[in-house]
Design a binder for these strands. Structure first.
Length: 317
RNA sequence: CGCAAAGUAUG
């Protein structure tokens, strides 16, 4: 059962849902019927594939078979509905799990916060966090909870509020990590508030976080979007000096910056440079360049890049 | 530790 479940999980995570379903049904015949783990795995796969109703009927099926849905089953569905923007349906699932005596935990509420933020229901998300703190124990907010909330706030442009929650989490003894700081640094950079982003960079180093490639990429992207291409390149040099390898995100940001500045041939040069470092341009990189050339009315070059992309088996992003 | 939640590039 375990090896079947592992294989089904792997298929789901590769997006091969129908293959996963087939294997799931096959388990019966081979005499090792699915258990509640297997059901949860497949329900998660269905949710990630936006097949929410199918996920719900699978939960009904597991119940009919005598496996009670667990907190993981319900949380998986809540996360699925939240990701689909169906907060009301997520709330229904939450009510049902409570009715059945299954206690929501930190993960459950964190999924809910994500959905609420994406729907712009920021105040409700903050309320959920408060409730988590009141309940404590299994519901106590952790670094993921705070990061999720901060990320959601930053995406809505509510940076000041995000910074307040950064302070709050530290005060409550929950240590921010790179994901937490990335949410804020990225948000600040997107608004051109590079100086404030740099302050947070210093802060994170001071508390013992290592600057990773994602942080550097966020800073480089911000500088590019501000038109500060020289500073962006300096930042790239700095990251290399610190032992961090630029990746396809780094280069695509730089290429975008050059395209925006009308420096298309320089942008092509960067694609060569990245290739020279063994970094393979992906469909986003190509799309960035193609759009740049198109907007500059260098359509022939854009088409050439499009063909090159297709010849490498890449689908336009 | 067979299963659920968080950070960066184009559109």
């Amino acid at each position: 059962v375990i090896s079947y479940s592992r294989r089904i999980d792997a298929l789901c995570k590769k997006g091969q849902i129908s293959e996963a379903m087939k294997m799931f049904r096959e388990m019966e015949e081979k005499g090792s019927p699915p258990d509640s783990y297997t059901y949860n795995i497949l329900i998660n796969g269905l949710c990630k594939d936006a097949q929410l109703e199918m996920g719900v009927s699978l939960m009904d099926e597991m119940q009919a078979r005598g496996f009670s849905p667990t907190v993981i089953t319900y949380t998986t569905l809540i996360h699925g509905f939240c990701t689909a923007g169906r907060i009301d349906a997520a709330m229904d699932v939450l009510d049902e799990m409570k009715r059945r005596g299954i206690a929501p935990n930190t993960v459950t509420y964190t999924a809910l916060i994500q959905g609420l933020c994406e729907r712009g229901e920021v105040e409700t998300a903050v309320q959920v966090l408060k409730e988590m703190k009141l309940r404590g124990n299994e519901c106590r907010p952790n670094v993921v909870t705070y990061t999720q909330l901060i990320h959601g706030l930053c995406q809505k442009g509510l940076l000041e509020m995000g910074i307040e929650f950064l302070d709050e989490m530290i005060i409550s003894g929950c240590f921010p990590n790179n994901a937490t700081y990335t949410a804020l640094i990225h948000g600040l950079c997107q608004q051109g508030r590079f100086t404030e982003a740099a302050v947070l960079v210093n802060e994170m180093v001071a508390i013992g976080c290592e600057l990773d490639v994602v942080i550097y990429n966020s800073l480089i992207d911000g500088l590019c979007k501000m038109g500060e291409l020289d500073f962006a390149r300096e930042m790239q040099t700095l990251m290399v000096e610190k032992g961090m390898a630029p990746d396809v995100f780094t280069y695509t940001s730089l290429i975008q910056g050059l395209c925006d500045a009308g420096l298309l041939d320089e942008a092509l040069g960067l694609m060569q440079e990245m290739r020279g470092k063994g970094i393979v341009p992906n469909s986003v990189t190509y799309t960035t360049l193609i759009n740049g050339f198109t907007q500059a009315d260098r359509t022939e070059h854009a088409l050439q890049l499009l063909n090159e992309m297709k010849s490498k088996g890449l689908i336009p992003a």
